[in-house]
Amino acid sequence: MLTDTAAKDAVMGEIKEILLEDLDENAAAIIGHEELIALGLNSLMLARLILRLNSVFDTNPFADETVSVADIRTADQLVTVYTRSRSAGRPV
Score class of each variant (00 low, 15 high):
residue 3 T to M: 11
residue 4 D to W: 10
residue 5 T to S: 11
residue 5 T to M: 12
residue 6 A to D: 15
residue 7 A to D: 04
residue 7 A to Q: 02
residue 7 A to T: 14
residue 7 A to R: 04
residue 10 A to Q: 11
residue 11 V to K: 02
residue 13 G to R: 09
residue 13 G to N: 15
residue 16 K to T: 12
residue 17 E to P: 00
residue 18 I to C: 02
residue 18 I to V: 06
residue 20 L to K: 05
residue 21 E to M: 09
residue 21 E to R: 07
residue 22 D to F: 15
residue 22 D to C: 07
residue 23 L to S: 05
residue 23 L to A: 09
residue 26 N to C: 09
residue 27 A to W: 05
residue 29 A to M: 07
residue 30 I to N: 05
residue 33 H to K: 11
residue 34 E to R: 02
residue 34 E to I: 03
residue 35 E to F: 04
residue 35 E to G: 03
residue 35 E to P: 01
residue 37 I to S: 14
residue 37 I to Y: 14
residue 39 L to A: 09
residue 40 G to H: 03
residue 42 N to C: 00
residue 45 M to F: 12
residue 46 L to Q: 06
residue 49 L to A: 07
residue 50 I to D: 03
residue 51 L to H: 09
residue 51 L to P: 00
residue 52 R to W: 07
residue 53 L to D: 06
residue 57 F to P: 06
residue 59 T to D: 05
residue 59 T to S: 14
residue 60 N to F: 00
residue 60 N to K: 08
residue 62 F to C: 05
residue 63 A to F: 06
residue 66 T to Q: 11
residue 67 V to I: 12
residue 68 S to D: 13
residue 68 S to H: 14
residue 69 V to K: 15
residue 70 A to M: 07
residue 71 D to T: 12
residue 71 D to C: 00
residue 75 A to G: 14
residue 75 A to P: 09
residue 76 D to G: 10
residue 76 D to S: 15
residue 77 Q to I: 02
residue 77 Q to Y: 01
residue 77 Q to W: 04
residue 77 Q to D: 11
residue 79 V to T: 08
residue 79 V to N: 01
residue 84 R to N: 14
residue 85 S to M: 00
residue 85 S to L: 00
residue 87 S to N: 10
residue 89 G to D: 04
residue 89 G to E: 00
residue 89 G to K: 00
residue 90 R to T: 13
residue 91 P to F: 00
